[in-house]
Write a protein that binds this DNA or RNA. Structure first.
Length: 441
RNA sequence: UCCUCAGUAGCUCAAUGGCAGAGCAUCCGGCUGUUAACCGGAGGGUUGUAGGUUCGAGUCCUACCUGAGGAGCCA
């Protein structure tokens, strides 16, 4: 009777017993009549021990010289061993090689260091490395946690379309698609559509891919990225700032609780995440300008910040470096922000909007605002931004029929994952990143 | 679109304008506790492409291609 199948992650439950592992050969060290194959199965890695005098000659020969990433079904007895990184070793008794990687064409990704371009060309294989697998588990946890957060607070998931007839905020960064005899675009935000579902259901959110044809080549940009966007009827800017703070602290807490080992494997400094507790600092745009100009005067910031403009990337990095927690920057000048943002009644030149800047220089992970409720003002803003009115007729309807104050935000999943994992680049946060000049594999 | 940097063996990288090399991977051999194992040996090259300077170019010059980091813009 074959031993029961166990994942490597749960192998400790079978200490002293025989188990079957279904996986791949991660590495092999040989020492004469002892073989030390290391197996992986997607949940972890475990070192096996094959002693020549403990198995048949055929069995020993099948493991000796076995090539990296050959698929194997292994049977062996689980033994606790302080020398093993995971705490357990497997005394191998049976090995079935399911598919052997040929020596003539060995697995290209070795355990040694590789360059970015090579790894990206082999992304379909790079995913097998323990670090990449850990990152994807953290991503899955963050997605699950974000959905739990909204589901548990009375939000309804409403999916906006991916194919859209017009721009949300201008056409320069849209991917065009042929749609029969019409021109369509891939969505760059579900926001306008979930404003409609919020008027139907009250508290809604969307989670899906968005597309931006920005010619950005930085560690923070993808052309295809996933956003989670809540939209709340009768909510104000203050309400969604509280919501954003609650969401972020919930995500960090959940990852620390459930993906601690993965975060450690990635090399994350957990002490920095432990400090991410509400309340988060909140600074107005005016205060931010003061901080940035003082920093420039002291020589801490190269360029002098000019009031009235949007915050540049170095500005955001400096601001966020002043705090251990994410910082909420609110009430930017209306003229540098999107057309649909409600002006501050006390300062009509400012928009009721907020950007959340992640610590450690990870930059903007959330952008949100209270939306214009007035039909006339919204129509005027569409005109001022030089946008055609016809495609926005349905959007104006939302103000014509029972308009209410409402607000929402969008959080880029990949930037959140990059920050929580402490990664150098967002390209590692999604299985197959889409970037400027990168469409393969 | 702009700025900066880099392209040499399958991979990571060396090589003052003067014989193109090392480690890993692959192949052969050795080792009963290895931890990116180690030790001995072998094979592996149109130096990104096209021109140019020079007695001689991986190295200097020009253009192009590819990649990386950044700016702007954004999540």
């Amino acid at each position: 009777m074959p031993a029961p199948v166990s994942s490597i992650a749960e192998v400790g439950r079978h200490e002293g017993q025989s188990v079957t592992i279904q996986g791949w050969l991660y590495n092999l060290r040989e020492s004469g009549k002892l073989l030390f194959p290391i197996f992986r199965d997607g949940t972890g890695i475990i070192q096996g021990v094959v002693a020549k005098n403990a198995v048949t000659p055929e069995m020993f020969a099948s493991v000796k010289g076995l090539t990296q990433e050959s698929s194997v079904i292994v049977e062996g007895k689980v033994r606790a061993d302080p020398r093993a990184p995971g705490g357990y070793e497997l005394d191998v008794s049976q090995v079935q090689v399911v598919a052997r990687v040929p020596e003539s064409d060995p697995y290209p990704i070795s355990l040694k260091e590789h360059g970015v371009d090579f790894l990206m060309e082999h992304r379909h294989l790079w995913l097998r490395s323990p670090r990449q697998a850990a990152i994807l588990r953290v991503r899955a946890e963050i997605v699950k946690a974000a959905r739990d957060f909204f589901d548990d607070r009375g939000f309804t998931l409403t999916d906006p379309p991916i194919l859209t007839p017009a721009a949300c905020e201008g056409t320069t960064t849209l991917f065009p698609v042929d749609y029969f005899d019409e021109q369509a675009f891939l969505t760059q935000s579900g926001q306008l559509y979930i404003e409609a579902t919020a008027m139907a259901l009250g508290r809604v959110y969307s989670f899906g891919p968005t597309f931006r044809a920005e010619k950005s080549k930085t560690r923070r940009h993808l052309t295809e990225f996933w956003m989670i966007e809540p939209e709340v009827a009768y909510a104000t800017l203050e309400d969604i700032m509280d919501l954003a703070e609650g969401l972020i602290s919930f995500l960090v807490e959940r990852c620390l609780k459930r993906r601690r080992e993965d975060l450690k494997a990635i090399g994350r400094d957990l002490a920095k995440l432990e400090k991410v507790l509400p309340p988060f600092p909140r600074v107005s745009y005016d205060e931010a300008v003061r901080i940035l100009q003082e920093a420039h005067a002291k020589g801490a910031l190269e360029n002098k910040f000019v009031r009235g403009g949007d915050l540049g990337s170095p500005d955001e990095t400096f601001l966020s470096s002043q705090f251990d927690q994410p910082v909420l920057v609110h009430r930017y000048p209306a003229k540098v922000k999107a057309f649909y943002m409600e002006p501050d009644p006390n300062r009509p030149d400012l928009a009721l909007c907020v950007d959340v800047l992640a610590p450690e220089g990870y930059g903007e992970i959330i952008g949100g605002s209270q939306r214009i409720a007035s039909y006339e003002l919204l129509r005027q803003r569409i005109r001022e931004h030089g946008l055609p009115e016809a495609p926005f007729q349905w959007y104006l309807d939302l103000r014509k029929y029972g308009s209410v104050p409402h607000a929402g935000f969008g959080m880029g999943i990949e930037r959140a994952v990059a920050w929580i994992c402490g990664l150098e680049h967002v390209r590692e946060t999604i299985p197959f990143p889409r970037m400027l000049y990168r469409l393969y594999p």
